[in-house]
């Protein structure tokens, strides 16, 4: 973990209530090292003038060559509203990278052979971490399928980003205004054919907890899964025990031992 000052390169609206911010990482060897070692699913914790606690936002993607990190945030309260008003050139005090992130299957391992066809599911503000996860999986030679769930067409974003990476991308909208009408679990059901053969062998998800739970209940019991959880945090780096949750392997801190939990340890 480092405390760095990032510079805003871009801050723009990409869907109803959703902003994308591109941040320039300082050009120091330490920061560049950090940038190379980010894992999909990790987050940054942003200090915002006038607010006491930092605001945790998940990392969408990064570009080690350009020295940038992209975050996508939903304007839901004072912190994200203030972020929405920030302009190019302004700087942010950031603790990063935080959390465990998604474990990518290591090449050559048994787990890697069993999880060649991962299913990535992002719901609403849970879409961003799927971007870098999908990119890294494609770079590793895996064939991810992506499901993006939104309420309505005006909330939808990034479909093209996943398609451009070459991932099969399914969209659902609760009101049917775009893609398949319904929830991400409705799209999941289309990935199992009439013989019961499943088009995916592992599942990675981020989004609201009821969605995560529904995904867990819909995915075949035998496949592994990794789910990213949200909780109100104090510090973001494991010191305050504010965001603890109980798992089958004991209590875990969402900020440090998570936010990604393994399917088999989750107590719903």
């Amino acid at each position: 973990m480092r405390n760095s000052e990032f510079t805003i390169k871009k801050n723009q609206r990409i869907a109803a209530g959703m902003n994308e911010m591109i941040l320039q990482v300082p050009e120091t060897p330490e920061d560049e090292e950090m940038l190379r070692n980010i894992r999909p699913g990790q987050f940054i914790n942003i200090r915002i003038e006038g607010l006491y606690l930092r605001r945790p936002i998940s990392i969408c993607d990064w570009d080690a060559g350009a020295g940038t990190i992209t975050i996508v945030y939903k304007t839901v309260g004072r912190g994200t509203e203030a972020m929405g008003l920030m302009e190019t050139g302004e700087t942010l005090d950031i603790l990063w990278p935080l959390g465990n992130g998604y474990a990518l299957p290591q090449a050559g391992q048994e787990a890697e052979r069993r999880t060649r066809r991962p299913l990535l599911i992002g719901g609403g503000a849970g879409v961003p971490p799927m971007v870098s996860l999908c990119r890294r999986m494609i770079e590793a030679g895996l064939q991810p399928t992506v499901i993006l769930g939104f309420r309505s067409e005006e909330d939808a974003y990034y479909q093209d980003r996943f398609e451009a990476m070459g991932a099969r991308t399914l969209i659902t909208a609760e009101d049917g205004s775009i893609g398949q009408q319904g929830f991400v679990t409705d799209a999941m059901r289309t990935l199992i054919d009439s013989d019961g053969a499943c088009a995916y062998d592992s599942v990675y998800a981020c989004g609201p907890e009821p969605m995560l739970r529904a995904i867990c209940e819909t995915a075949p019991e035998t496949i592994p899964g990794w789910f990213s959880f949200e909780e109100r945090m104090g510090c973001g780096f494991g010191a305050c025990m504010g965001c603890s949750c109980e798992t089958k392997y004991g209590s875990k801190r969402i900020c440090k031992d998570g936010p990604v939990l393994e399917r088999s340890e989750i107590i719903w």
Partner: peptide
């Protein structure tokens, strides 16, 4: 001890609440 149910952190003006 696990402590109390979450949410157990709240932001305040120049401070915070915890019910860990």
């Amino acid at each position: 001890r696990f402590g109390n149910p979450t949410p157990r952190i709240a932001d305040c003006t120049e401070g915070m609440l915890n019910s860990v």
